[in-house]
């Protein structure tokens, strides 16, 4: 099961709090350098999964591994914590202290040398455009700045894996963009990032692969794969005018007409290459004039809502 390029691995990983199952038999793996989204509604078990993988809470059953270390193994827990960086849902910065001190103490917690701490703090604060405010209390910062600083804190020891729990939750659009751009910068550096989110747009834009969860794992794949696999193939045919003959001829030919509008139809197909010309022929033969035909693609949001609703 273990492969050198798989950095996060879980097999039937389960967490129960008393009678309540927070994470139910989740099996997944995340490759080195991949940005992976854990997408699900509130209470889907996203935070619990990250907490288990960061050895903050114990698992109830199943198997979990980060790098070559097993999460349930007591002797591996410190090693896992050394190789990961965690941004919790609440940033939890020391508000009274400056950004420099916040990063410096975390550098010390990871036993970085003074020189390394100084270099890395300077690097991140300059990157985040906070160098000029390095001695100002964090309490005076905007939410977006705090969030970025908290991500830098998670990166201070240069971890192999970064767990980000809802990094843009509760942020205004501008601050969200600021944080997303920062994550995209990290993606360029080929960091392995495990991102918990309930924002579909975020997952679609940033991540290589997405797991949709609602306690259980519902679907897994790249955003494009998920959209393709679940959208169902549909075409929209724009015509001069829709009439009853067109509809009945299409139905007679075995097509499912999903939507009827005065000047357009939405039709389910099995194979675009084979069915599109056939549909055109039927419509023309029924007296209709086709203006254009296009394939309908659903968004990740459609996929997500469909899957989560079914569950």
């Amino acid at each position: 099961m273990a492969s050198f390029s798989i950095l996060i691995d879980s097999e039937n990983l389960t967490k129960k709090f008393g009678e309540v199952t927070a994470v139910d038999s989740v099996t997944l793996s995340v490759n080195e350098g991949e940005v992976f989204a854990f997408l699900g509604p509130n209470g889907a078990g996203k935070t619990t999964f990250v907490r288990m993988m960061s050895c903050l809470i114990s698992k109830t059953s199943g198997y979990g591994r980060v790098g070559n270390f097993e999460i349930g193994n007591r002797s591996d827990q410190e090693k896992i914590r050394r190789m990961i960086g965690v941004l919790p849902e609440n940033v939890g910065l020391y508000e009274e202290l400056s950004p420099y001190d916040n990063l410096d103490f975390y550098g010390r917690y990871y036993r970085l040398s003074e020189e390394k701490r100084r270099d890395r703090i300077e690097f991140f604060l300059k990157m985040l455009d906070l160098w000029d405010r390095r001695n100002v209390p964090v309490a005076t910062f905007s939410k977006g700045m705090k969030q970025k600083l908290a991500i830098a804190r998670a990166l201070i020891h240069d971890p192999q894996v970064l767990f980000l729990d809802e990094p843009t939750a509760n942020l205004d659009p501008e601050a969200s963009k600021m944080v997303r751009d920062f994550i995209l910068e990290l993606k360029k550096e080929k960091r392995t990032i495990f991102l918990n989110t309930h924002l579909l747009d975020e997952a679609e834009r940033i991540c290589d692969r997405v797991a949709i969860v609602k306690t259980k794992l519902i679907a897994l794949g790249s955003p494009q794969e998920l959209m393709r696999s679940l959208q169902g193939k549909k075409v929209r045919v724009q015509v001069q005018q829709v009439n009853d003959i067109i509809i009945s001829e299409l139905k007679n030919a075995g097509y499912r007409v999903e939507e009827v509008h005065p000047d357009s139809l939405v039709i389910s197909v099995n194979d675009f290459t084979r069915d599109n010309p056939a549909i055109l022929k039927i419509i023309e033969a029924s007296g209709g004039r086709v203006k254009f035909i296009n394939e309908i693609s659903s968004s990740l949001e459609d996929v997500y809502l469909k899957l989560v609703k079914v569950e």
């Binding site: 960061s54 903050l56 410190e78 914590r81 050394r82 990961i84 965690v86 941004l87 919790p88 609440n90 940033v91 939890g92 910065l93 020391y94 508000e95 975390y106 917690y109 990871y110 908290a150 804190r153 998670a154």
Partner: peptide, 14 residues
Amino acid sequence: VQKSLEPLLATPMS
């Protein structure tokens, strides 16, 4: 209150 315990607990400290 500041929620600063969780990031601290995620460090290698026991």
